[in-house]
Write a protein that binds this DNA or RNA. Structure first.
Lengths: 250, 250
DNA sequence: TGAATACGTTTTGTATACAGTAACCGAGGG
DNA sequence: CCCTCGGTTACTGTATACAAAACGTATTCA
């Protein structure tokens, strides 16, 4: 009915989905909490039907869990769930890298990857890294991973990787953002960048096994990154996704 | 409104989802075909709202594709999509096997796996295998893989494997069912059974890398199985899921 | 005093009505 | 004869009304 918002031209379902995801990730909705459709209708501005569709999508996405008696609740994750998700993602990206290497990639297709690499190199050159440079790194790193995934040219695999990356904590580059942890984080990032370099080299030389192995090692590094992030808990303000962790670990 | 069907006590959404999936897998709905909600309402007996929910779920499941202008169509798969899906599933199951091996599994937990193994052994003992024994094998094999997945004790991984297995052709044991192909299929099944045996042994001895490697090899065997199934095209009557393959390959 | 049952309230699941939009068909002009 | 433009139709997306089920509460009986 043409709300006063500027959101027109975007479907109500998508609007509700984004709004609810924001609420979950920002901690407005706590893990384990039952989601009231009526309340969601009020906060999102959409009607019940699109809200329900959004809830179904978010459940499939893994952020919500269906309650047997009806309705949905925010999913709670254990620390192991998260490290498993990271390793899972790494395994899938390893497969993507192997596919890319085995199936061959033209120099033209590798171009954007190499540009990404160079841009990250520039960021990492400054010691210590600034907080701004760090957030630039996060988006550049995401871009690199997305491009690499595309190189596999396997729609089913790309789809699964997207699914695995939907969980916000599966993309581990954004974990360490607290000022105090930056030097230690930079060390990790430099190693990660070396992984990036090697995987491109392996793809260029069509070394599938090597490409896969290095992406897996990359994921293990990310798990280490996660541990670091959990130790310096100041990051919680910056990455509320971690609020989804069960408090059982405390 | 209490239809005359015996489906009462099951939600309309689930009913519609099952009915639509049947229609897709049985070939009633052709790949690329736009799904009419109105028509789906008539065939499933549910109302438009649950039908829409079912459509969203089937889209997330990977059987449907959203049309930009609205609505959904049945997804079409290439032959490579299918072999990629199999390899993808194998990679995930490899990770599950590794997790099981690394994290340790009690003898009691391995019991049902071994029972499964023994039951399959019995089936494979008869040469040539009967068509009935073959379909028993299919369900036993599915059970074995499900149990193995559970052993990983990793909810995120189990979830992803379930997703990957939702595509019907990702479970390759059911491919070869044509009478003429049975002897050749039995050869493959015997090798597959050896893989099953090795993966259990590896898990018992906590050899993570070995457990993972054999499950990957298992998937490559399944791809070979797929090729065989595509050559003996008589199976098309028995496994209409393959009708989802794009006809471009013809 | 505690537990069980019945009633009321709240919330979800389902059905349907309405509106907006895209596709299709036909007619007219180039 | 083909291309284009306008109308019509049928479909999807959204909103809302209704029904059934679940939860909480209070009251009564043991």
């Amino acid at each position: 009915m043409a709300e006063r918002e500027a959101d027109r031209s975007v479907s109500q379902t998508v609007k509700a989905q984004l709004a609810l995801r924001d609420q979950i990730l920002s901690g407005t909705l706590r893990p384990g909490e039952r989601i009231s459709e009526l309340q969601a209708v009020e906060t999102t501005g959409a009607s019940r039907t699109p809200v329900r569709m959004a809830l179904v999508r978010l459940e499939e996405e893994g952020l919500l869990e269906a309650i047997p008696s009806g309705g949905f609740m925010v999913k709670a994750f254990s620390e192991r769930d998260i490290s498993d998700s990271i390793e899972l993602r790494g395994t899938l990206e390893g497969l993507a890298a192997r596919f890319a290497a085995e199936r061959g990639v033209s120099a033209r297709e590798l171009e954007p990857l190499k540009e990404c690499l160079a841009a990250i190199d520039e960021l990492l050159a400054q010691v210590p890294i600034s907080i701004d440079a760090f957030s630039s790194y996060v988006s550049l790193n995401a871009r690199f991973h997305a491009l690499l995934t595309e190189l596999s040219r396997s729609p089913p695999l790309i789809r699964q990787i997207d699914r695995a990356s939907a969980l916000p904590f599966a993309s581990p580059s954004g974990f360490v953002m607290a000022q105090s942890a930056l030097p230690e984080a930079q060390q990790i990032l430099i190693i990660a960048q070396e992984h990036h370099r090697v995987v491109i080299d392996a793809i260029e030389n069509r070394e599938g096994a090597r490409a896969e192995a290095v992406m897996r090692e990359h994921a293990r590094l990310a798990v280490r990154n996660l541990r670091l992030a959990l130790r310096n808990r100041t990051h919680l303000d910056l990455l509320p996704a971690l609020a989804l962790i069960k408090t059982a670990t405390d």
